[in-house]
Simulated scan of single mutants.
Amino acid sequence: MRIGELARLTGVSARSLRYYEQQGLLHSTRSSGGQRYYTGAEIARVGIIRRLFDAGLGSRVIARLLPCVDSDDPDIAEGAFSTMIGERDRLTADITRLAEARDALDALIEANTRYRLGADRDGPGPAEEGLHRAS
């Protein structure tokens, strides 16, 4: 099937399919005129690639995971599993850092809100709280 048909069947743009191929995630054969042709197996592969992108993985990580789709080798499967665990741990650490940043911002917003309402006029001002009041 040609790229337009694969795009229609998978809901992925032709541009994305070309990107997947450029990154080594997807494979096609070429006609003498240079048109891409895909097998039916590529429909399932695109589905897997989309799920991995949706899980927050980048194309380099996905390229490391895809060999387990094409192989029954337990070592390859174990490597892919370890990669997924590592990526989940990276995402968890990112979530923790973002939550801490949000909590710090919430504290600044709360202090600024109290100051603006006059509740802290006798306490530390915005400069002492690390804030700068706009004139």
Rank of each mutant, 00 (worst) to 15 (best):
R102Q: 06
I76Y: 07
I85K: 04
G118E: 12
T10W: 00
R36M: 00
D89I: 02
L105F: 00
L9A: 02
G56N: 01
P126R: 13
E129L: 15
R30N: 05
A107L: 13
A41H: 10
A119E: 15
E21N: 05
L117K: 10
R114P: 13
L57P: 01
A134Q: 15
A80N: 04
R97M: 09
E100L: 09
P67R: 08
L98R: 04
L65G: 05
R36Q: 11
G24N: 05
R18E: 09
P74E: 14
R88C: 00
D120I: 15
P74V: 12
G47D: 07
G125W: 15
V12D: 01
V61M: 05
L52T: 03
R15H: 14
A7E: 08
R51P: 01
I95P: 04
A44G: 10
N112A: 14
M1V: 06
Y19S: 05
R2P: 14
L6I: 04
D70W: 03
G33V: 07
A77H: 13
L57K: 02
R45Y: 03
L57G: 03
A119Y: 10
G33H: 08
T113W: 06
A101L: 12
G4I: 03
A111K: 15
E87I: 01
L98D: 06
L66F: 12
P67K: 04
V61G: 01
I85N: 03
R8V: 05
Q23Y: 01
G47W: 12
R36Y: 05
L26T: 00
D75V: 15
S28M: 02
G47V: 11
S28Y: 09
A14R: 12
R30E: 06
V12S: 05
G4M: 09
M84D: 06
A7W: 10
D120K: 12
L65N: 03
D103A: 13
S28K: 08
N112D: 08
S71A: 09
R133H: 15
Y20A: 02
A104K: 12
R60T: 08
S31Q: 10
A104L: 08
I85L: 10
T96Y: 08
L65M: 04
P67M: 09
G33W: 10
E110F: 15
T92P: 01
Y37L: 14
L6G: 02
G79P: 08
A55T: 06
S71G: 02
T29M: 11
H27N: 03
S135K: 13
G86T: 04
F81D: 09
N112T: 10
G86D: 02
F81K: 10
A44H: 13
Y20E: 09
R114S: 14
T10M: 02
A101H: 00
R15T: 11
I49Y: 07
G33N: 14
L17F: 02
E129D: 14
G86F: 06
S16I: 08
A77Y: 12
E128F: 13
V46D: 05
A7L: 09
Q23L: 05
R8L: 07
Q35T: 07
S82A: 12
V46N: 01
G130V: 14
V69I: 11
R45F: 01
R30G: 10
I49D: 00
R88N: 03
I85F: 00
R30Q: 11
A7H: 08
A111D: 13
L105Y: 07
Y115P: 12
M1Q: 09
S71C: 00
S135Y: 11
A101C: 02
G56F: 09
